Computed example of a mutant assay.
Amino acid sequence: MAQSIHINTMREMLKAGDPVDITLWTKSGQIQRWRNCISLRYDFYKGVRRVKLLDSRQIRTVRDVCIFEINNLTVFL
């Protein structure tokens, strides 16, 4: 059975600064899996997070509510 965590627990995991694997929905509705990434900055008022992909060194922006899995743990609201 898959384990699940609350979105606040996910935020604490990202805040810790350790590399994680996340699965998310994009703006176009596609599902992407980002491996080995860290959170750089979080804007509480916009709900947007800047994430750095360590393998490619790209910096991307994602909304927290679009992340539905972190380290193979399902995220719920």
Rank of each mutant, 00 (worst) to 15 (best):
T61P: 09
Q30C: 02
G29D: 12
D64W: 00
K27N: 14
T9P: 05
A2W: 06
H6F: 03
L77I: 06
S39A: 10
A2C: 04
M1R: 13
N36I: 06
Y45V: 13
L73V: 08
S56C: 04
F44H: 14
K52P: 00
A2K: 09
A16P: 04
S56T: 12
V51N: 04
R35F: 05
I38H: 03
M1F: 05
P19Y: 00
M13P: 01
N72H: 13
K46R: 15
K27C: 00
T74E: 13
G29Q: 12
W34P: 09
Q3W: 01
W25C: 00
S4L: 03
F68V: 05
Q58H: 06
F44V: 09
T26V: 05
K27Q: 15
L53V: 11
T74V: 12
W25R: 14
H6D: 14
K46G: 06
G47W: 01
Q32Y: 09
S4C: 04
R50L: 10
V75P: 07
R63G: 09
V65R: 12
H6N: 14
T61R: 14
C66S: 14
S28Y: 08
L73Y: 11
D64M: 08
L14W: 06
I59C: 03
R57K: 15
F44G: 04
I67K: 00
M13G: 01
D64N: 14
F44P: 00
P19F: 03
V62R: 06
L53N: 02
T23S: 11
Q30S: 04
Y42L: 03
I5C: 05
R49M: 07
D64Y: 10
M1L: 11
L73F: 03
R35L: 06
S28L: 03
C66A: 13
C37N: 05
I5G: 01
E12L: 10
I22W: 02
I67N: 01
I70C: 09
I31N: 00
L77Y: 13
S39V: 03
A2F: 02
Q3E: 15
E69M: 10
V48S: 08
L40N: 11
R49P: 01
L54G: 07
E69S: 09
D43M: 09
A16Y: 04
V20Q: 10
R50W: 12
M13E: 00
D18S: 14
S28K: 13
D55A: 12
Q30I: 01
I59N: 05
L73A: 05
Q32F: 01
A2V: 14
G29M: 08
D55N: 11
H6A: 11
V62L: 08
L24W: 07
V62M: 04
N71L: 05
I22Y: 08
I70N: 03
I22D: 02
T61V: 09
S56V: 02
L73N: 08
I31Q: 07
T26Q: 01
L73W: 07
P19Q: 04
G47M: 04
S56E: 02
D18K: 15
N8D: 15
R33K: 12
V51M: 10
R33L: 07
M1S: 13
L40R: 06
S28T: 11
